[in-house]
Nucleic acid binder design. Structure first.
Length: 579
RNA sequence: GUGCCCGUAGCUCAAUCGGAUAGAGCACCAGCCUUCUAAGCUGGGGGUUACAGGUUCGAUUCCUGUCGGGCACGCCA
């Protein structure tokens, strides 16, 4: 099925192409761009083709534009063609043609805005991937909101998207989680002592210890005093490692049971929070699995066979400098443990084996130094890193009014995603996160976000939607007949034409998002469309107008409502009928 | 110190792979509810796009340098 918006654009391109052929012959003109101008004064569509050809043809751009217009075949969709500015061709559509967008939207409903840019392309979108060692915080929330919205947009545009969460259920942090729970557990049993400074201090650890004690009893109860450790130390990092070692010795198999229970509990909380936040995943990829299935060893072997490894000071290094990284990187430590880097290579190696056309990673911006080494390793394994796209999400800097809120998962000083949701609601949080370009710092004022008043931009858009709904429900006509009304009566007031022009822009917004892998254009667009609707609502009577304008206007309002609904749903924000 | 990202209205941010007079929101000022939801609308002031050069018909956008901010530079994850 040909799409209306593509139709118009293709038609304009064809007109220009035909015209150019007749005046300049076979000049290479494969990239004619038809854009929607920022200002409605510049027409419904415009092209800068004359400016682009100016150098090649060694002619004044305005003259070229004149020539193009002069030999352009007449077409019924056009009201007029203007030449403006330095040599822009501005196309004005006849209002009846513009009005087709209303019919198009009402016909396609939820599918309006979709296009075939991504048809058949498989994309793996990995996001959040926070350590299951504590609740998700507001920093993770931004990545979650971004990934979920981006995947919605990509899907809408035909991409086959798999959403994946990489679960770091291996490594030192998971041991720290385990002994943190254990220490709290011992406290509960009356073995009070100073809590290790490098342990996780959040209240959730105590809650978890409580839960485990209530459910499983005293099986982890051992006589243990930090001060009685075989090698006491002043170094906090070494101390926590000693505790881990001692816990493993004292608890034996039960240590791993405690670890399993702790991780499962954290992961469950994480899944619940994400679900509440309307963020879903297709797969949860376990880091532990790439160890147990031998993948980590395999990729190390392969890098070794390629001659890309080195043994120095009893550790195995990957020669990342041979692939444009500034340092070589350790794969396997002197103590025999693999690094996080090694398992991450294995994970990405696995991604490649699953035959995606594009791999997208959404990472916290603090990981940017990590990109070069991962790409280097993947190149060492013979993979094409051009298909791997890494999007960095800057952390949200929290404020309570003027006061900056310090955040650190380990110290337990953070605002959880759950807390944010409870305070401001999912709608406001999702919209707020989507508002800004992800590679920009986001000042997140909690007091402002908590305030459920008109300061929050999500209400503006939702209110526009609610107003549309209200009009339609009071209209008392048959919804199925709206498309007929949209065709029968001309809507050619300036504000109506502006709305139709804006509606036609929606597919462009989604396309842009897919091309740039961004989402912030959606809220920007929704605000603009909402503004036009509010203005129309204030200035033009709809229900109190006479027929046939009355029903035709309702059809326009219905089209706006549909697009607002479509856009909000991509962002995971509800579109209420009443407010 | 080295690398990456960033610097746009008082504040928070946009600006369609180099395009037209750099746009919104908040804040400020002046107006609009006996009519479909005032969580709204209308009008107004506000800018050397950090600074200095360069590339060209044209630069917020690309290149170089300076200043300022963030992040990363671990046998942590």
């Amino acid at each position: 099925m040909k799409l209306y918006e593509m139709n118009t654009r293709e038609k304009l391109k064809k007109l220009i192409t035909d015209s150019l052929e007749s005046i300049v012959g076979d000049v290479a003109i494969n990239q004619i761009t038809i854009e929607i101008p920022k200002s409605a004064e510049h027409g419904d569509y415009s092209s800068n083709i004359a400016l682009q050809l100016a150098k090649k043809l060694r002619k004044n751009p305005r003259q070229i534009a004149e020539a193009i217009r002069g030999s352009m075949p007449h077409d019924t969709i056009l009201e007029k063609v203007d030449i403006a500015g330095a040599g822009f061709l501005n196309f004005y559509l006849r209002s009846q043609v513009k009005q087709r967008i209303v019919v198009d939207i009402l016909t396609k409903s939820d599918q309006f805005g979709a296009f075939d840019h991504g048809v058949g392309k498989k994309v793996l979108l990995e996001f959040v991937s926070a350590n299951p060692t504590g609740p998700l915080h507001v920093g993770h929330g931004r990545g979650a909101a971004f990934g979920a919205s981006l995947s919605n947009i990509l899907k809408k545009c035909g991409f086959l998207v798999s959403r994946e969460y990489y679960v770091n259920d291996a490594g030192r942090q998971t041991d720290i989680l385990t002994v943190s729970v254990w220490c709290r557990y011992l406290e509960l049993s009356g073995l009070e002592q100073e809590f290790p400074s490098k342990g996780y201090k959040g209240k959730y650890i105590k809650d978890l210890a409580n839960l485990i004690k209530a459910k499983y009893g005293d099986r982890w109860l051992k006589q243990f005093q930090i001060t009685n450790l075989p090698h006491t130390t002043q170094d906090d990092e070494m101390l926590i490692d000693l505790i881990i070692k001692e816990a493993k010795r004292l608890l034996g198999k039960d240590y791993y049971l405690l670890k399993k229970l702790s991780l499962e509990s954290q992961l469950m909380t994480c899944k619940e929070d994400l679900s509440l936040f309307r963020v879903d995943f297709d797969g949860w990829f376990s880091e532990e699995s790439v160890f147990s299935n031998g993948m980590v060893r395999e990729i190390c072997d392969r890098l070794n066979q390629g001659g890309y490894t080195d043994v120095r000071e009893e550790a195995i290094w990957f020669k990342a400098t041979e692939f444009n990284d500034d340092k070589d990187r350790v794969l396997k430590r002197a103590n025999g443990d693999y690094t996080y880097f090694a398992s991450d290579i294995a994970y990405h190696h696995d991604k490649y084996s699953r035959e995606f056309d594009k791999l997208v990673n959404v990472w916290g911006a603090d990981h940017h130094g990590y990109i070069a080494r991962v790409k280097a390793a993947l190149q060492g394994l013979g993979h094409n890193t051009d298909i791997l796209e890494i999007i960095l999400i800057q952390f949200a800097v929290l404020f309570r009014g003027q006061q900056k809120v310090p955040m650190s998962t380990r110290s337990g000083e953070f605002v959880s995603l759950r807390e944010l949701i409870d305070e401001v609601g999912v709608d406001a949080a999702r919209y707020f996160y989507a508002l800004r370009k992800s590679d920009q710092h986001l000042d997140f004022d909690l007091d402002l976000a908590k305030a459920k008043n008109n300061e929050n931009p999500v209400f503006y858009v939702q209110y526009a939607h609610a107003r549309c709904s209200s009009l339609i429900s009071k209209w008392n006509g048959k919804i199925e007949e709206l498309t007929r009304f949209a065709q029968q009566t001309n809507l050619d007031q300036p504000d109506e034409l502006l709305i139709m022009q804006k509606l036609a822009e929606y597919p462009d917004v989604l396309k842009k998002c897919c091309q740039d892998l961004v989402i912030h254009n959606v809220p920007t667009y929704l605000r603009e469309l909402s503004h036009l609707l509010h203005r129309y609502y204030t200035a033009t009577p709809v229900l109190s107008a006479d027929e046939p304008e009355r029903s035709a206007r309702v059809s326009l309002v219905a089209a706006v409502k549909q697009v607002l609904h479509n856009g909000l749903s991509l962002l995971g924000v509800s579109a209420p009928d009443k407010m």
